[in-house]
């Protein structure tokens, strides 16, 4: 009995501390709220810096010059020219090559893992493919520059030492796991009843996949493609190393092409003094990059949510 009394005493004693306790209880959510708002502040920080410095840039350079002319010579002492088009073509061409690799291979990998592979095979292959996603991009850059480019030059003698083709391919390989795992998720969420329905009509696995599973999962699959493109556009190190810094307005992927990201690297690590137009130009480019990737990410989320079939 005495023991019970002891516990009660203890609890009562503790209750004297309850005032302090309720103070803690009240301040904790406030503190946590502050921590949570850091992420919002980060976004605010990104948007406001980009907008502010971009605004300063467009005081010197017109929007028309930036988006419609084709010459980019930021550091020319005589007559600097600022057009984003050479960078846009560089970005688009490298991303295009990347997606030409990532979409077919990523999608077929997803189909294989989701529809064809036995659970045991899937269990082994899936994490191995994920390893590709965990390799730092700088390593891919090294690989593109010191291995893939020299290899491609064996077959395409005209290929430049830096070019859009090789980093594009390597970027595509990097994006395979992203496309594969998101597409596979989409296909896995197609109910088995639908596969059975098609098989009961005498369809082969291929017919089930092409005519039932892929159409049913198409929104998730397209979302994976869009996210892949967004990743390719924002990728920096591979293209900085292997695509070079040529600012010519060209569509020739065998030659050096600078992407938006590589331009930012060049200007920040170069001599452009703070306050010059060349310096502000990198914010204008970064802002363009930010808007592009943000829109694509939002679009991907929108389609995968909006068109998710209610089975």
């Amino acid at each position: 009995m005495s023991k019970t009394v002891g516990v009660k005493d203890l609890i009562q004693k503790k209750d004297k501390l309850s005032k302090m306790k309720s103070g803690v209880e009240k301040s904790i959510p406030v503190f946590l709220f502050c921590l949570a708002s850091i992420s919002v502040l980060t976004t605010v920080g990104i948007v406001s810096t980009l907008v502010y410095e971009t605004f300063l840039f467009f005081k010197d350079v017109s929007l028309i010059e930036f988006f419609t002319t084709t010459e980019l010579k930021p550091l020319s002492p005589v007559e600097p020219k600022f057009s984003i088009l050479p960078l846009l073509t560089g970005t688009v061409m490298t991303s295009l090559v990347a997606m030409l690799v990532a979409i077919p291979i990523g999608l077929t990998t997803a189909v294989f893992l989701s529809e064809y592979a036995s659970p045991a095979v899937r269990k082994v292959l899936k994490p191995l493919i994920e390893v590709l996603a965990g390799i730092p991009t700088i390593v891919y850059g090294f690989f593109a520059f010191t291995f893939v480019t020299p290899l491609l030059r064996e077959f395409i003698p005209a290929l430049g030492a830096t070019n859009a083709l090789s980093p594009g391919i390597v970027m595509g390989i990097m994006i395979i796991p992203l496309v594969a795992s998101l597409s596979e998720d989409a296909m896995n969420s197609v109910p088995n009843a639908m596969r059975e329905g098609a098989m009961a009509l005498g369809a082969t696995k291929l017919e089930v996949t092409l005519r039932v599973v892929i159409p049913a999962a198409i929104s998730g699959i397209i979302a994976s493609f869009v996210l892949g493109i967004s990743r390719a556009i924002g990728e920096t190190m591979i293209v900085t190393i292997a695509s070079g810094s040529s600012k010519n307005f060209t569509f020739d992927i065998t030659q050096s092409m600078q992407t938006m990201t590589a331009y930012i690297v060049e200007v920040t690590s170069g001599d452009a003094a703070s306050g010059t137009t060349a310096y502000y130009s990198l914010y204008a480019v970064a802002f363009t990059l930010f808007v592009f990737t943000l829109l694509m990410n939002m679009f991907a989320r929108y389609i995968s949510r909006k068109y998710r079939e209610a089975y």
């Binding site: 708002s37 920080g45 810096t49 930012i264 920040t268 990198l282 914010y283 990059l289 943000l294 990410n297």
Partner: peptide
């Protein structure tokens, strides 16, 4: 959902843009 969306969006921002944020805010 605003904070949640914000975090999802941040996850998709290219790392180089974070670099510019760092350059502007922390470095300068």
């Amino acid at each position: 959902s605003f904070i949640q969306t914000n975090i999802t969006n941040l996850a998709g921002v290219p790392s180089i843009v974070f670099g510019l944020l760092g350059l502007t805010i922390f470095v300068r």
